[in-house]
Design a protein around this nucleic acid. Structure first.
Lengths: 140, 140
DNA sequence: CTACCTCCCGTAGTAACTACAGGTTCAAGC
DNA sequence: GCTTGAACCTGTAGTTACTACGGGAGGTAG
């Protein structure tokens, strides 16, 4: 087991450092703070934000969840449910399954679209004889 | 010369009729008119819009194109190109092919997501033993 | 000391609609 | 002719999830 990059002393991060470490846009971090998706950061004397490990973990969590296609509301629910409440696991699974169903529907729709586009495009020779099949399809 | 009023029906439609016939939301029709995606409608004395066959054809064209995943800008380009300009067919084909590529990329991304969700969700029994695998995945 | 970078805040913009609020007009029934 | 309810009008604001910008202040290397 490799020791993670842990600092025994409390680590603090500037907004830019946190953006780098969490692979999140800097404006996005401020945005997440504003809408309450991450806790409010402490401040330095200068007014610059001072984030801690907790913010980093939360941001990585959020990015992963977003990568998994969860909406902002779902992410919010996942955060609330990930705190160890009994039975929350079942709720989390249910959110994931709803999402999986939506993803599968999206894939199915896009595949139909792909076939339509590919077929129609293949018929087109780019010379409009007798008429462009793409436009024909759109006009009926 | 007497115009054959009886048979060559200059059909007019109200906004609601057009919405019904083109399967478009009524607010959407007004929106499309406002942004110039369809021509400005004529007006009755009362101020109610009066649409013609041309509007209906255009709206159906737009709906089809949108169903095919074309963006509003692409739809605008397709409308401009569908007017019979020489060589436009090649440009139309190019728009369609760009779109096809984007659709395929979206499908690939969603499939990766589908696997991740399905796998993680399958591991979850909804009883958090020892910990919810979905949350584990999000936390690393 | 002077660049230059990073950070601050607030606002506005993006796509592509969708949803009011608050009013007019039309069509049908009595 | 009157009433009622549906359909229509305009204009603005809300949606999702950010992203960009303007204009200024703090931090640091040479």
């Amino acid at each position: 087991m490799v020791a993670p990059i842990t600092k025994s002393r409390p680590r603090f991060y500037s907004t830019g450092e946190l953006a780098e470490l969490s692979q999140t846009h800097i404006e996005n971090i401020r945005y997440f703070e504003r809408i309450g998706l991450i806790p409010k950061a402490g401040r330095m004397a200068s007014g610059h934000r001072r984030f801690g490990e907790e913010h980093l973990r939360r941001l990585i969590f959020i990015r992963r969840a977003r990568d998994m296609g969860f909406s902002q509301d779902q992410v919010r629910a996942l955060i609330a449910l990930s705190d160890g409440t009994p039975n929350s696991c079942a709720e989390i699974k249910s959110i994931a399954e709803t999402n999986l169903r939506l993803v599968r529907e999206k894939i199915a729709g896009l595949k139909r679209l792909e076939h339509l586009l590919a077929e129609t495009s293949a018929k087109c020779r780019g010379n409009r004889t007798p008429a462009c099949p793409l436009i024909e399809v759109l006009l009926q």
